[in-house]
Design a protein around this nucleic acid. Structure first.
Lengths: 178, 178, 178, 178
DNA sequence: AATGAATGAGCATTCATTCAT
DNA sequence: TATGAATGAATGCTCATTCAT
């Protein structure tokens, strides 16, 4: 109460949604959980996002942008003389070593899109963004294959709980590169 | 009614659960939906499977076995003289061309395992089964990489709605094989 | 609580629904209002009646039966020597003079069926029941017309708030009879 | 946007409300649905009509006027030498044969007035308008009875889904006329 | 005068689970 | 052993209305 005028309400709801998905998974994202996390009334979440899918799309698109920004700010994948496979394996290592919230978020998106058509475009963007970035260092077909392999490697780590083996990743990525 | 003694009740519930997951996704698997699909009373599902996770594990394990049986019955991946990449690309094509229930089931499993530890072992089994089968034709590291790449390729097809390009798959799988 | 075993639960819910519709109209019939009126948990109403329409149909069918019983118990419309128009006008007078809950209930049903196909059969039954009863005293066409006129007269009374004029009713019903 | 000064805003809202009631029934008339149909901001509907009842009354009164205009423009019921019953039966046939929006609108009004006192005067006007028009061709009592019978006949058609039988209508209306 | 934002109450419905039989 | 009945909690969503601008 007493917060009638709140111009950043919408953005705060999206951020809260990201935290909720990170903490409890997509299945845990409900209007109520996000309202509680954002400390706004329930009605406020349905006002700004008519359906949960709409909120989900907004949240996941923002998560994607966050990842892209990280790549850009590091100048990652831009040095055309570097060893692409090694660099990619290194990035993956960093990504998987840190707080896994971001990683799991991306793969929840990926896999949730399987059943929720509304998420497909966002999932496709994610793929294409990375593929395009990689295509600058190699050809489009190879870039696409690298994205596929990266996805598969991440899934194995996330699902089996095995620790990430950077040397293995570098080796097999290198096979695809040439 | 009048079906009190039904020794295969448990098995029929599991099969119904597989059909439900195939049709509506894991999120659509409820005691009620499976009871309706199996044409058994609601109480019967909770009697045979105390929790939903228990039923889910049973259903997904059975789905895995079904896939393995298909491979075996075809003698797939057994001819050591064949071109492994080509054969794998062909199998993928068949798998993705038919009724996609089985394919989607596998990836639903992945999705669910991400957040439900109870399903991790089942997801791991799935990976390992295929990896082991492939390892007979190549080395373990390559086998693992092939599984990862296969997963990534399938995801791209399922998520972007793009049609499966067998030639592309054969080409990149071949790069990993050697 | 402490009322787990309650074999007449279903019937009590129907009766409560009738009281709710009588008091607040069909628009006031909600799972919550009927649960409160019947003094049962909310879940109990949805357990016995999966949708509101289902409950509505049950309630209104029971109301119809109640009306038919009243007619039968009075031996109404059975004396073939009586003046049909006068008798009908008299019955209408009694019906409209008493507690109007029953009357309004019937017409809410009638008119609600306009938009709710699920209620159409019940509305039709009501018409046909009365038409059939009247047809024993005259021909089918006349019976049908009498039902129509009775409906129109009741609506005028209910909607304009005018008091029922039995002499007028007898006169115009008599014109239709012959 | 950019429609700040819009002198016919109020009228357009009323017309939108009529379309909404015709399409979805009175239960479907909400500030939101009418704002969407009229393509005006939500706030605009509450600004011009403080409560929904107010909007409903305006909408239904306008619908009445529309019907009256149709009668007048056709010169209906004005030729004193014509057969009143036949003419009325014919009008009913036309009314029921076309787009039923208008017909259903009238009976929705009846339904709503049963429970909403604010609408009673509008319902009464509707009756009286027609009765008065008919009274010019016959006496007031007969006119009132004709309105009642017309209502009853329409209800039977609308509720049972039976097709309109003009010959039957003419016959029973004729009995009332004399 | 006009409106976008906000909100608290309410809705139908679904559900996992418990329990008496 | 099996199951129909029961139930409390939760969900997505809609809404009339209020209010600050």
């Amino acid at each position: 109460m007493a917060r009638r005028h709140d111009p950043e309400r919408r953005g705060r709801i999206v951020e809260a949604a990201i935290r909720v998905v990170g903490a409890k998974g997509i299945a845990g994202l409900t209007h109520r959980s996000v309202a509680a996390e954002a400390d706004v009334p329930l009605g406020s979440t349905t006002y700004h996002f008519a359906t949960l899918d709409e909120l989900l799309v907004a949240a996941l698109r923002q998560a994607n942008e966050g990842f892209a920004k990280v790549l850009v700010s590091r100048g990652a994948l831009e040095d055309t003389r570097a060893d692409l496979a090694a660099e990619l394996a290194g990035l993956l290592g960093e990504w998987l070593a840190g707080d896994r919230t971001g990683v799991e978020l991306e793969y929840e998106l990926y896999l949730a899109a399987l059943r929720r058509p509304a998420l497909r475009p966002v999932a496709a963007e994610w793929c294409e963004d990375l593929a395009e970035r990689l295509a600058r260092r190699t050809d489009p077909l190879t870039a696409r294959a690298l994205v596929a392999l990266v996805d598969g490697i991440c899934l194995q780590v996330l699902l089996t709980g095995a620790s990430y083996d950077e040397e293995y990743a570098r080796e097999v990525l290198a096979r695809v590169v040439r």
